[in-house]
Design a protein around this nucleic acid. Sequence first.
RNA 1: GCGGCGGUCGUCUAGCCUGGAUCAGGACGCCGGCCUGCCACGCCGGAGAUCCCGGGUUCAAAUCCCGGCCGCCGCACCA
Length: 590
Amino acid sequence: MRRRGINLSNQSQDLYEKISDLSRRRGIFWTSFEIYGGVAGFYDFGPVGVLIKRNIANQWLKHFVYTKENVVEVETPIINPRIVFKASGHEDHFTDPVVECLKCKRVYRADHLIKDLLKINVEGWHPENITNLIKDNNLKCPECGGELSAVFNALLLFTTQIGPYRGETAYLKPEHAQGMFINFPQLFKISRSKLPLGIAQIGRVSRNEISPRQGLLRLREFNIMEVEFFFDPEEADEEVKEVLEEIKDEKLRVITADMRLNNIEEPAEFTVNELINEKIVKTPWLAYWMGVGNRFLRSLGIPWDKIRFVEKLPHEKAHYSAQTFDQEVYTQRFEWVEVAGYAYRTTYDIERHAEYSGKDFMVFKRYEEPQVIVVEKVTPTPTTIEKIVGKENLGRVMRILSQIKPDDIAKELNTKGFIEVEGFKLPSECFQIKKEEVKVHGKKIYPHVVEPSFGLERLLYVVLEYSYHEREDKVVLRLPPYLAPYHVAVFPLLAGRKIEHIKMVSIARKIYKDLVNQGFRVLYDEEGSIGRRYARADEIGVPYAVTVDHQTIEDDTVTIRDRDTTEQIRIEISKITKFLLEKIGIGTLV
RNA sequence: GCGGCGGUCGUCUAGCCUGGAUCAGGACGCCGGCCUGCCACGCCGGAGAUCCCGGGUUCAAAUCCCGGCCGCCGCACCA
């Protein structure tokens, strides 16, 4: 028998190319705007691609939201007014200082150019100051010797306007985080004012990358799945224990910043518990979510030893982060690829939004027992003060005193014996000091934040890499059943014109309909030989295929073929549902 | 953004160096028909290419030259 098949024989193709080919052929993804020449950094997703993506997202929801009592999901706008990213620091940090050669039009990173030529670190400098530095040192284009332009900031945020006509400047969000921070006070109330509180979001973000490449791995518009997890750092050790049991023994492969500084490249193994106990993480919640993320990736079919966590070095971290780990997956062409980041954002973001909005982002933390504290109440006595400052100055001095915190006055008096106002030394006699007992029920704190954040398209790519197999020159996508675009395929063995064939088709169609109505995603196909249909289903990862054959007409049984083994079993039609639920898992039929 | 290489039906490719007879050829895939008792079987037929885009050279450009777009690799970049 002659072997046919699509062109998989091209030996020079690496996995990346094979996946790109498969994806184009079977409707997973391809580059956008192709008829107009294409635009780098944008991809379209086809019928199969959107289904797999949605399944990955559902799996994420299961791990990060639905199974976590204190995590809720929100959706916030893509377009944000400028103030949001001023407050977040993006307008200052999500930007590169750039100079252009006026002669040859080459563009340079200004900070890198100066570091190379003058050995000066200008990170964080204002563009104007960098421009002056260039002028003062008479720096020229290193390539052609031409004059350099003024330094300007290349902003990596997409810009737009709110309002079609002379609108307000706005940005497309590059991450979801701000949407959750802004809504924290509201969601905290809705969630009955309890910490810890996780706020999750899935959706599109965009980044105006300078030079996107590497297919799905670096897009200008993509989906992020993110949790902002708010907690009280003082209670973290205790509170994490309540949920740690399920994940504490999850083993992670980790390269710490220390290891990197010592040139150790091979990850060390830690359980979540060990990460916490050995103080490798700055908050136990970071380790907790890393554990959840590790298990999530394994559930996507990524082998344990192809996942690693790499701690960022201080200079690699984002402006808001106290500690960051990247979660990476090994790929054939690009080696280790970041699929998630775990950042300890502390109070940075909500403090900034509090500052810029003037709203209160603090939460009240109730003490277990009200604390009785003794406060010294300090009241100035004008008559005594007047004797020292004179009548004409009394009003002014009193006003100034009223603006100083009583605590600070008391402190001054206790240490120096007087407080100085406008050059006058006012001794204790000028104040009435009363000790009062006050019941304090709690205090206000800014919650800290840990953020696990996943790139959905990157996950799609690594999932495809690890599910891609070839069997006798044919592609088999060994997706975990709950990620497959269809749970099951239904085929009539033959679909010709004979009475028997017509019966097969009608039974198969009925099975298809029944399964769809039960919530399964089902692929029905009657075109081409049965072998060809199996092959088509294999290529998009359909885990099971039900075939209606001659025997079905006799006794209501069908065969079910397993995608990975190609083995078939025969079962009664009435038992298909039970079989599928057992194999696929009912919890995944979201 | 810089440099190198590349871009021909959905896919892989022949043709490009040495411009002209190719209506741009083939294979696989796709569609229709026949056949078919379980793994891309066979037979017949069919659709499918802006030769990446634009300009130039030439009597004549898929082919030569220039610019752009896109892709790959290296550098840079990746809050």
